[in-house]
Design a protein around this nucleic acid. Structure first.
Length: 234
DNA sequence: TCATTAACTGTCG
DNA sequence: CGACAGTTAATGA
């Protein structure tokens, strides 16, 4: 409940990982912990960067609105992950919108305190650098996927992404997204997602129950986009 | 239970 | 394939 770094179990959190360093521990004392209800926006693109958010628990989505007013979801973030990092440093404004997808607890670190860490704690700074590099690579891959895959492939790719990141229990994906959010991530619209999901269900490779989706034949789903993955990674 | 939202279907450009 | 209209199912006040 209190959300302090000491009791936090997210070992992948870049702050938590470096908590043994006294400078980090001191800054962690001054973080702000906030609870947000589901579907609340907590970062608005274009507003002044005041710091970074870390997800303590819950799921959030990071998106950009393009010129048509259409929402492109860049990624979903879960516990331990950092949000708002691209606005950190050279650019003064956030480059993305961020919303909670479920009820969530967020840890907020102000920019000036983080600056202090980056200049004084090389190990943590190195962790951040690796994180940035990874994210850059992911976003480049995503741009290619959206440009080159068919709608059906993009929906399958999105389902596999949710599966990889959030897992599945009792034959249903742990994270339940609206069709609209799946569309936003896949880079298509809600109706197309519904159509692809219906076909996949008919083919017996997935199951549906309300908004819950279960992946039944993982190999078949993977096989269908494998060709494209191969191309993208070459 | 009723009203609102989300899921789904058909059609057209 | 995306946009729009219309219908049905689910949700929640």
């Amino acid at each position: 409940m209190d959300g302090s770094c000491e009791i936090c179990k997210n070992d992948s959190c870049l702050i938590k990982k470096n908590l043994s360093n006294s400078i980090v521990a001191n800054v962690a004392q001054h973080k702000k912990v906030m609870r947000v209800q589901k579907n609340r926006q907590f970062i608005i693109e274009g507003t002044l960067v005041q710091g970074l958010f870390f997800v303590f628990d819950g799921v959030t989505k990071i998106s950009k609105t393009n010129f048509n007013g259409k929402e492109q979801i860049l990624r979903f973030s879960k516990q331990g992950e950092t949000i708002g990092y691209r606005g950190f440093g050279n650019s003064k404004e956030y480059q993305i919108d961020a919303f909670s997808v479920t009820d969530a607890t967020l840890c907020f670190f102000s920019s000036d305190r983080l600056e202090d860490l980056f200049t004084n704690v090389p190990l943590m700074t190195y962790d951040f650098m690796r994180f940035y590099a990874e994210e850059l690579s992911n976003s480049e891959t995503k741009v290619q996927k959206i440009a080159q895959m068919t709608v059906r492939e993009k929906v399958i790719d999105s389902l596999l992404y949710i599966y990889r990141k959030f897992g599945q229990t009792n034959d249903f994906l742990k994270l339940n997204l609206s069709r609209k959010d799946i569309a936003g991530y896949a880079g298509t619209n809600e109706e197309q997602v519904i159509r692809v999901l219906s076909s996949l269900e008919k083919e017996g490779v997935i199951s549906k129950k309300g908004k819950k989706i279960g992946l039944l034949k993982l190999q078949d789903l993977k096989a269908e986009i494998e060709e494209h993955n191969y191309y993208l990674s070459s």
